[in-house]
Amino acid sequence: MRISLIFFTLLMGLLSLPARERPLSFVSDPSFMLPEETRESLDLFLRTRSHKTQSEIFLLLEPLPEATADESKAILKDLGHSWSEKNWAIIAYRPGQINPPLIVAGGPLFKEVNPSAWEKEITTLQDLSLQSWQNTPDIDFLARKLSDSLVFFSQFKSATIQSLTKNRNEEFRKKYRSHKSKKALILTISTLSLLALGLLCFLSRKAYLAKRKMFFPETNWTSRLGAPHSGGSAAAQRFTPPSE
């Protein structure tokens, strides 16, 4: 009997591998744990929420292939990532599995806000759901409250975006300033480059002119005073001798 149960559980586990497709309903209750009215009401509630917000809650009221809570949580996280691109949470109630019967895993949104706060939220609501008057956890209560929390945290992110925006604005201002200073830097460098180029051109021209050889035109002249080279063209000036 036990072996059959184990085999059945393993088989169920194999059948519900992490690669399963996203369910059509937000409440997956193959064994009809919830009353039909509750199931439909909850499904409608979660569906409406999903349409209006960026938050989705999935209920899996079925056994999971792995036994330990951490392994189950890991599986739920894989499922959540593959099922939803929004903020998500999956509640799995594992009938027949004792420790613990209720597993909740949440989506990746909150790493931007406060992941520990989210984990704490899940723990608190799980705890309260177990304190219901029913002999089983109040899944309906947990799903609705978790949905509220999910919506709040996701919106809270938006609300804190005001501060994030402020930070972003600060960053933008810094960036703008740095962009402005970059612009100023580029302008300065361009100006200096132009000046340097101008100076270089000037110096090059000066060097060219300095190296350039200049020739006077040849002319016909007539010698005089019997002098072969110089005809007496001169300039003369007197100067005051330096004082002794």
Binding site: F216, E218, T219, W221, S223, H229, S230, G231, G232, S233, A234, A235, A236, Q237, R238, F239, T240, P241
Partner: peptide, 26 residues
């Protein structure tokens, strides 16, 4: 005699203005 003079050959003297030369000597 405390004089300074600049004497030029036939070719060079063709192109140099004497008055300007005198200014330089001064």
């Amino acid at each position: 005699s405390s004089q300074v003079t600049f004497q030029m050959g036939y070719d060079l003297s063709t192109f140099i203005n004497r008055q300007k030369l005198e200014a330089l000597l001064s």
